[in-house]
Simulated assay, not measured.
Amino acid sequence: MGDQASFKHQQSHTYKIWLTFVLAILLLFVSFIASLSIGAYRIDFLSVITYLFHHDESEPALIIHSIRMPRAIIGMIIGACLAMAGAMMQAITNNPLASPQIFGINAGASLMVVITVVLFPDFSPTSIVYFAFVGAALGGCIVYYMASTGGGMTPVKLALSGITIHMFLSSIIEGIVIFNETSTEDVLFWLAGGIDGRNWTDVQIIMPWFLVGLVLAFGISRSLTILSLGDDVARGLGQKIALIRIVTAILVIILAGASVAIAGPIGFVGLIVPHIARKLVGSDYRLIIPASGLLGGVLLNISDVVSRFVSFPSESPVGIVTALIGAPFFLYLARRGGRSL
């Protein structure tokens, strides 16, 4: 009787996982089509489908190809990058409040990008990504050190350390912007986090980093599942804990740093999505990471579509919408003492 109940439970869980991935893929497709269709220039569904299967020289096709298609692709990629980075950070720190934004990675990457763009404008967009990696690593290391001292890391200490470093680095960014007014407007818009204006060059820049991060994240997912059981258990099962954490930290820096370099410090995606994915598919990171990637793409593309109506017909940064969604979610988690959903 017990075996039969266990089998039914396992079967139900498997069905739930399959349903989650099918619905996530369907939602990703719907959000992608909505991103191509909705905007100041409305393009009907038939024109979008026609473009996907047959390229012509019509005005809707040109708008889709040159403006909306790269924007939608960038939205999916960056949403996936930030969500997977957040999931991996929560795994290696065993802290449900960990995310690229809370951990200072976004702020560090933003500082280095702003320094590069404002003080060294001749650098190519491709090389700016490497400066973002350096800043992401610097910000993450500082927050990790501050949160780990004095009795070990806790959700509250992580949040306080992250907010402190974020405010400190943000003040440096503001100082740089104030004293270099020629670049103020573009930099301030970028700092709010946005994917509007992205083009095929940006897709080419971020795609290799995304693919590398995606493959390595899948490769390390089993080890992250074991690590989530605790250091002692993972060590007993033969896992090299220090190596796993170092490799995962490098992956987080690659995914989050490349995202910030292209779209600015878009917040809360890496915090919200892993919790939702964990609630839907369980605690196995072989499922959490791909689920987070799909749902991250959905969240960012839907947020981008919503952001087009904030000051319609003008564009608004998508970071405004993710902040409106994420801030209450963060407060809810903090109120629960850092526990998951």
Rank of each mutant, 00 (worst) to 15 (best):
I195H: 12
I142Q: 08
G152P: 04
T184P: 00
G197A: 08
L169M: 13
G139I: 07
P155N: 05
I128P: 04
F133E: 05
V177S: 01
A137K: 04
T149E: 02
S171W: 11
I195W: 10
W190V: 02
G193N: 06
D196W: 13
E185C: 00
Y144M: 13
F120C: 11
G193E: 05
L188A: 03
G135F: 13
I173H: 01
G194N: 15
M167G: 05
N180F: 07
C141D: 00
T184N: 06
S124H: 13
G162W: 10
F179T: 12
S124C: 04
I142C: 09
M153P: 07
I172R: 03
F120V: 15
H166I: 00
A192M: 15
F133D: 05
I195T: 11
A132W: 04
I142V: 15
T182H: 15
G197R: 06
A147H: 09
L138Y: 10
V177E: 00
A147N: 11
F179C: 04
G152H: 09
W190H: 03
T154Y: 09
H166K: 12
T149D: 00
V177Y: 00
I128E: 12
G193R: 08
L188V: 15
S183K: 13
L188H: 04
F123T: 12
I173R: 02
T164V: 11
F168W: 02
E181C: 00
I195F: 10
I172V: 14
T182I: 11
I163E: 08
W190P: 01
I165Y: 02
P121C: 10
L138S: 12
H166Y: 14
I173C: 03
A136L: 09
T164F: 14
M146A: 02
A132I: 03
F120T: 14
M146I: 14
T164E: 03
G175Y: 07
T164D: 01
V177M: 04
